[in-house]
Write a protein that binds this DNA or RNA. Structure first.
Lengths: 199, 199
DNA sequence: ACCTGAACACCGTTCAAGT
DNA sequence: ACCTGAACACCGTTCAAGT
């Protein structure tokens, strides 16, 4: 027997019952607040508490912390991907890459602990269902890198993954600094300088 | 009234009682094993258990996790400082720096979580009693950087702290990778390439 | 279909009581 | 002088019982 209209899994779409939908929204909303306050390692128990639900309800809506983070960041990531796509037609190929890397670092600085979380949950283990947001970000980054490489403005031997790993590492290294934005810029400058080929 | 012979603090030297000295040694020994197995975030409770003491005893000997890590790594750090001092008289100023940075990354890869721990406990907050090992490492690094800078083989505008922060970030980004050593080398190559001035 | 909240298995840290 | 181990305050995660 084949079920046609969805399988009972709560992740296969927004909840249909009114109270469940309200809980879902409140969880995302309170997660956003908690992440901003304490970083993406914020207590899930407290997020549930603030959303006015029991802990089990949070797990029903978002089985893993990643699911919650993903939801909270979805729009920003989409913007980052859009930016990348637009930059693919920018004049200076290296500048386009530089601009996007800057935006990527800024993104990774959105919440404390985000860079570390991304590193642990995606770049290392070959997780089967790579979160789509990651896949799209990676694709855009790869396209920008490929274009710069073709134009001869990118140093040879700079692996795509390595560059993205460095971007993540830079956000991580800057995140708890007094002026994390300026700190990240300085570290990124070091990286970008190394990405230019020698004259 | 002034106490002359020590102030009763357990940290003011090795324990004098035989059982305490044995416990001290066992704690360091078991910490080394636990760190190698699970990284520097290893459970302190289990370290105590393996050392055959109660948790309170561990805290008596090592009030903070940092004290334990420091003790376990003391010798390696001393070697790293020695290496740096020797490299100060090496022929090629840039190569000397490169070699030391490589050793520093390798050091930071000794135990999982070490780079993160160092970042959180030292580079950010201006901890009053900066652990001596850090101070010495920083001094050697600064000397090597200064020498390379004087010789004109180091790019202008590379801040000492920034470079060390990047070294730490590289170790962090490589630590959970299948071949962390090779991964770290590749990332370090990117950094070092950026440290050379343009011809 | 969804929610509750107790239960479980872990943490780190402190401190009164012992020897 | 030093050690023990219970106590406390936190975690994340699961699941039987409810509505």
């Amino acid at each position: 027997m084949i079920t046609l209209a969805g399988n009972g899994s709560p992740r296969a779409g927004r909840p249909r019952r009114a109270d469940a939908r309200r809980n879902h929204e409140q969880l995302v909303e309170q997660a956003r607040i908690a992440f901003a306050e304490s970083g993406v390692d914020a207590s899930l128990d407290e997020i549930a508490r603030r959303a006015g639900v029991a802990s089990g309800t949070l797990y029903r809506h978002f089985p893993t912390r990643l699911d919650l983070i993903e939801k909270v960041l979805a729009e920003r990531i989409a913007e980052l991907v859009d930016l990348g796509n637009r930059l693919l037609t920018a004049e200076d190929e290296f500048d386009a890459l530089h601009t996007w890397l800057r935006a990527a670092v800024t993104h990774a600085l959105t919440y404390r602990g985000l860079a570390a979380f991304v590193m642990n949950s995606a770049l290392d283990r070959a997780d089967d269902p790579v979160p789509t947001w990651h896949a799209e970000m990676f694709a855009v980054a790869a396209a920008l890198l490929a274009r710069a490489r073709r134009s001869g403005t990118l140093v040879a031997g700079a692996d795509d993954t390595d560059v993205l790993r460095m971007v993540n590492a830079i956000a991580w290294a800057a995140q708890d600094t007094p002026d994390s934005s300026a700190q990240a810029d300085r570290l990124l400058a070091l990286l970008v300088h190394g990405l230019r080929p020698r004259a």
